[in-house]
Each structure stands twice: as C-alpha cells, then as structure tokens.
C-alpha cells in the first residue's frame, strides 16, 4: 500500500514515504484500551467502542496484531504488559497504533488516563511507547483532557491525536465514537484508496464531532487536534507542515490490494499506475499556476489513462 495523497501541499512530503517501488506491507500492532468508565453508561460505551475498533482492526489484514483491554482488565499493569509484549515483537518497519478510550485528567502539569486501580500518566505511556522500535507510531487519546498529554507523548515519527485541544477541556468526549465509526464507514475513505489513513479518520471524527454539538445545540466542549512532527503545537487540520505522517499511517485496509502488489503478472501495470498517480499529484501541485482549460485537459488525459490501467488490473 503506497502512501495516500492529501492535496498539493502534502505531495512533496508524501514522497518521503512512497519513493520507489511499492513497499510490501509490514505488520501493524494495535493496542486498544477502554479505561475506567466510573458509571455503567460510560463503562458500556467505552467497552463497546473498544470492541468495535478491535473487530475492525482484526478484519483489516492478516498481519494485524491486536491487544484489547476492557473492564477489569484495563489496569495499568495489564496495559504496560501489552506495551512490553509489542516492544518485544515489533520491528522498526512495523506500525504501532495505540487507541485510548475513556476518561482522562490533567492537573496543569500531568495528564493521567483513568484505569481500574492506579491511573497511568502520559509520561509513563510515552516512556513505554519509546521502547517499541516501530518507526511510525500513532497514539489516539480520545479521553477528556487528553490535550494535556500532547506535549509529553509527541516525538518525531509519532503522530499524536487527542480529542481535546487542551487539558482544560475536561468534559466527557464523543470523539471516540466517531473515530471508531470512521473505521466502519467507507465514506471515511475520502481518497477512495480502499484504506483508511490516520488523517482520514481524524478528519472524519473531527467533522462528526462538530456536527454532533451543532445538532445537539450545545457549545462544543472538545476540539480534536493532532501533532505528527513533534512540534509541541498541535493543529486542528493538516497544513504544509503537519499531516504527512498521519496521512501515511494506514489504520485499516478495506480490500486485498496487497495481493495485487505481490502478483508478478500485474507488477508492470501497477508500476504504470504508480507512475500515473505521481503525474496526477504533480499536475495538481501545478494547478494554481496553470491555465484552467489546459489543466483540465491534462488532468482528464491522465485520469483516463489511469482508469484504463485500473480496468486492466481488475481483469
């Protein structure tokens, strides 16, 4: 699976992740934790969301390794065990996806994710993840006050998504619901690449969260952000600096295009497809400086070629 494209500004950044021949898929390690609900309603909601996420991840690919902690299993020690296990197995080319669903707290200095028994701090989570050799990591903390964890969790090569922009947003969040929904809704695959990237899931969940507060006529008490360059300045949408890593992390695959990549009979066609896709990216990058008619003509030609190649691949 090659990297996704996400608009002209990100094209050049993407190439860092998609240079040369299509890379074969590495494994992805998913750790999903449903923290302490405190009340039956939250307990139920967190567990259900975590199980839905696990189901989606498990069905995504043969090389998906999932670890799920819910209910009484969601303790700091079991959480650390899971992270240790992954640290022992994951290779640098494997991806790590950590999804935290539950309540969090932030006292102005330290973020804690609420678990059964002692809570775990943001610092502890970061330290455990640092031991995992995966070069590309994604931590999605959907808890209340999770914005307070960004600074301690971030580092180069790790994308951090939080459901709140700051530790001061302390109300229970709905972002997790829509993050998991992104894994189940084909509409989240906005570039129709048959996979859901971290950025696609983020955009989907953020928009749905905003719509939720609108429809409920409530003032939004959560504003999701991400940081994927370790800058300490999380953002609410991708820009020229942020978004490339998050876009390159494939959360979920919706079909078996891996097999196509590895089929020698179709390798040439796939290379041609790759070439056309890169030309389209390049053309889009030049759009602003081109005559609209000329742009349309060239884009149409490339898209027609690409469509024909895809037809061949699908035969």
């Amino acid at each position: 699976m090659r990297a996704h494209r996400r608009g002209a500004l990100l094209v050049l950044l993407f190439t860092l992740w998609s240079v040369g021949v299509p890379r074969t898929f590495a494994a992805t390690y998913y750790i999903i934790v449903a923290g302490l609900g405190g009340e039956p309603e939250y307990e139920q909601r967190f567990t259900a969301s975590a199980k839905d996420a696990e189901k989606a991840f498990k069905g995504s690919a043969d090389n998906a390794h999932t670890y799920l902690l819910t209910g009484n299993d969601a303790t700091a020690s079991r959480f650390k065990d899971a992270l240790n296990t992954v640290a022992q197995s994951a290779k640098p080319e494997d991806d790590l996806v950590l999804l935290l669903i539950g309540h969090g707290s932030f006292d102005g200095a330290e973020y804690k994710f609420n678990l059964v028994g002692p809570d775990i701090t943001g610092g502890e989570i970061a330290e455990m993840c640092n031991r995992i050799s995966s070069r590309r990591q994604l931590i999605v903390d959907t808890s209340s006050a999770s914005g307070g964890a960004v600074q301690v969790l971030e580092r180069p090569g790790r994308a951090v998504v939080t459901s709140t922009k700051a530790g001061s947003e302390k109300n229970a969040t709905v972002f997790a619901r829509y993050w998991v929904q992104a894994l189940q809704d084909p509409d989240a695959d906005t570039d129709k690449s048959n996979s859901i990237s971290g950025l696609e899931a983020f955009i989907y969940a953020s928009k749905k969260t905003v719509a939720f507060y609108d429809s409920q006529k409530r003032l939004a008490t959560e504003h999701a952000v991400f940081d994927d360059i370790g800058s300490g300045q999380p953002v609410r949408e991708a820009d020229g600096r942020q978004g490339a890593l998050l876009a390159s992390i494939t959360l979920l695959r919706l079909d078996n295009n891996q097999r196509v990549v590895n089929d020698p009979a179709k390798r040439a066609l796939f290379t041609k497809k790759e070439d056309l896709e890169q030309k389209i990216d390049s053309l889009k990058y030049q759009k602003a400086a081109m005559d609209p008619g000329d742009y349309k003509k060239k884009l149409t030609a490339l898209l027609l070629d690409l469509a024909k190649v895809q037809q061949e691949l699908d035969r």
Partner: peptide
C-alpha cells in the same frame, strides 16, 4: 457530469466507480 466526475477523481484518482463513469463519458 464530466466536471463533477473529474472533481471526484481529482480528489481520489483511484476511485474505481468514478473511473468507470469517466470512461463511459469518453
């Protein structure tokens, strides 16, 4: 219709149903 299908494919060049429609239009 062609403008819209191009807009779809500009965002998602690998969008197979849109590719088919573009071929049909051409």
């Amino acid at each position: 219709a062609e403008d819209s299908v191009l807009a779809a494919l500009e965002i998602a060049p690998g969008y197979v149903p849109a590719q088919k429609l573009l071929l049909e239009l051409h």
